Amino acid sequence: MIRIPTAPLVLGLAGLIPFVWGALTILMPDWRDWGASALGPRFVGPYVQLFYGSVILAFMSGVLWGFATKVEGSRAAIGYVLSTIPALWAFFMTSGGPIGAATNLMFGFAGLLLLDYAFYQWGLTPPWWMRLRLLLTAVVVTCLAITIVY
Rank of each mutant, 00 (worst) to 15 (best):
I2D: 02
R3D: 00
R3F: 00
I4D: 00
P5S: 08
T6K: 08
T6N: 02
A7Q: 02
A7C: 01
P8H: 06
P8Q: 01
P8M: 03
L9E: 08
L13R: 08
L16S: 10
F19T: 10
W21L: 01
L24S: 07
T25P: 01
T25C: 01
I26Y: 00
L27I: 11
P29W: 03
P29A: 03
D30W: 03
D30Y: 02
D30F: 04
W31K: 00
D33H: 12
D33L: 13
W34H: 02
G35E: 09
G35T: 11
A36R: 08
A36M: 07
S37I: 00
L39Y: 03
L39V: 06
P41E: 14
R42K: 12
R42Y: 09
R42F: 07
V44K: 00
G45A: 12
Y47N: 12
V48N: 01
V48T: 13
V48Q: 08
F51K: 08
F51G: 14
V55D: 02
I56C: 06
A58M: 10
A58N: 03
M60C: 13
S61W: 02
G62V: 11
L64S: 06
L64W: 10
L64C: 09
L64Q: 13
W65I: 06
W65R: 03
W65Y: 09
G66V: 10
F67W: 13
T69N: 15
T69R: 15
K70Y: 04
V71L: 08
V71F: 04
V71D: 05
E72R: 11
E72K: 12
G73L: 07
G73H: 03
S74V: 06
S74Q: 07
S74P: 01
R75D: 14
R75M: 14
A77T: 10
A77H: 04
G79Y: 08
Y80E: 06
L82Q: 05
L82D: 05
T84A: 15
I85P: 09
P86Q: 07
A87Q: 11
A87Y: 03
L88A: 14
W89F: 04
W89N: 05
W89M: 04
A90M: 10
F91E: 09
F91L: 15
F91A: 14
F92W: 10
F92V: 13
M93A: 12
T94M: 11
G96P: 13
I99S: 12
I99Q: 10
I99A: 13
G100S: 09
G100Q: 09
A102P: 04
T103N: 03
N104D: 07
M106L: 12
M106R: 14
M106Q: 13
F107S: 09
A110G: 08
L114Y: 04
L114I: 13
L115Y: 07
A118M: 14
F119H: 11
F119K: 12
W122P: 02
G123N: 07
L124Y: 09
T125R: 14
P126R: 15
P126G: 13
W128L: 11
W128N: 10
W128P: 08
W129V: 06
M130R: 10
M130Y: 05
M130N: 05
L132F: 04
L132N: 04
L135C: 10
L135G: 07
L135N: 06
L136N: 02
A138W: 02
V140I: 15
V140P: 00
V140H: 01
V141S: 03
A145Q: 07
Y150R: 07
